[in-house]
Amino acid sequence: MEIGLNLLGAEALFGGDISCVPGLAAEADRRGIDLISTGDHLGFAADAHTQRLRENNFPFPLDHPWYEPISLLSAVAAVTERAQLGVSVLIATVRPAVLLAKQIATLDRLSRGRVTMGFGVGWQEAEYTATGMPFDARFGRMEDTVRACRELWTHAPAQFTGRNFAFENFHSLPFPVQERVPILFGLGPSPRNFDRIARVADGWSVNPTDLPGFTDSVALLRDRFTAYGRDPGTARIQVSLTPVQRPDGSADLDATARSAQQFRRNGATAVVFRPTAFGRTADRLPELLDWMISLGHE
């Protein structure tokens, strides 16, 4: 099982100084972390954010800073050597596919082939309105985005015709280092969404709210891979876990470790933790990193 570090909000551990976060990533990379990721939102409409807080227990306040993930990961790529780099998840459909393909190809080059990217469609129409992207049919647009990216990553000239955009005789270089950049979909568990993953993606990025019924979901996802003639054992299943809390609100590391190992036995190939969820200070991060990495060796 691979172990991941989610940098989202990690600047809070350094007095809000985002320039310290690549140093944390470098330390995690040196110690043996398998994956370094972050999250994504371009912004929020206040009323939509309030509704998300109320109905979904969204863990981030309206004034939480959301650094642009590809830019942040580019800084991380410069100071790391081995860990995979990704986003859990990037709202791919508020970005033009050609620009997104260029950004990811550049990141894969900078990191010498270490990108494993999660794509999603988000939940907030305001992000689509603000970027001039259509909110309707966004799931189909995400499939088109992946297909367009893969065309741009492997052919020059490239050509593609989708429902909302098209290009032909289009040269966009460089190609990524990897022959196939792994793409995971961060979607709710359903037969339709798992069909999408099996058709065009490489795995599932699992939100904590979608963990109930995980074992059945994994079985369904693997079944869809088989139905599309793909080896179900190749499906990457990346789980984002929050720590188990004691009654006093502190993180119970032993119980969290048991939870992580249970998800591994039930099909998770990677487990990702966000350090700020553990209530630790910066001076205790090395201890937390060592604990995280030890889980991958059990």
Rank of each mutant, 00 (worst) to 15 (best):
A148N: 03
T215E: 15
D252F: 05
V115A: 12
H49F: 08
S172N: 11
T129A: 14
R180W: 01
R30G: 03
D202P: 05
G279E: 06
R150A: 04
I293E: 07
R180H: 09
L187N: 09
G32E: 06
L8F: 04
L53V: 00
A277W: 05
T234R: 14
T131D: 14
A105H: 02
A260V: 13
S37C: 13
L220F: 04
R199C: 10
F170N: 03
R141T: 12
A45H: 00
D144N: 04
E68T: 03
L241W: 15
N266A: 14
V89I: 09
R141M: 13
G4C: 14
L13N: 08
R265N: 14
Q262Y: 12
L24C: 09
P275M: 02
G4I: 03
I237Q: 07
L99C: 11
I197K: 08
A92W: 07
P191A: 10
A25E: 06
P232A: 09
S19M: 01
D283S: 12
L173C: 09
L13M: 10
R31D: 08
G140T: 08
L289W: 09
P61S: 10
M1G: 03
V21W: 00
N266R: 15
T80E: 02
A257H: 12
T131I: 14
S19C: 04
Y128I: 14
D202T: 06
R150D: 03
L295V: 10
A156G: 02
F44D: 01
D29A: 08
C149Q: 04
A46T: 00
A78V: 13
T80K: 03
A268T: 07
Q238T: 04
D254C: 10
A126H: 00
F225V: 13
I237P: 07
V89A: 01
S172C: 10
V271L: 02
Q124T: 08
S294V: 04
P65A: 05
A282R: 08
T281R: 03
T50M: 00
L8P: 00
Y128K: 10
R54V: 02
H41Y: 07
R52Q: 06
R284W: 01
S259N: 10
A126D: 02
T281G: 08
S74G: 12
G9A: 02
M292T: 11
L62I: 05
A46V: 00
T269D: 05
Y67V: 02
D283A: 07
A268M: 05
P189V: 04
A201S: 14
T154W: 06
R109C: 14
A158W: 01
G32V: 03
G9Y: 02
D63H: 08
G118Y: 03
D248F: 06
L152M: 02
G15P: 06
F225D: 15
I33W: 06
W66G: 00
P232Q: 04
I197R: 12
D202S: 12
G233I: 05
I293V: 13
D29Q: 12
N266E: 15
E179N: 09
L90W: 06
E151T: 13
A282G: 04
G23S: 11
F139L: 15
W204V: 14
L99E: 15
L289F: 15
H49C: 03
E2Q: 14
P96C: 09
A260I: 13
K102L: 04
T93L: 04
L107D: 06
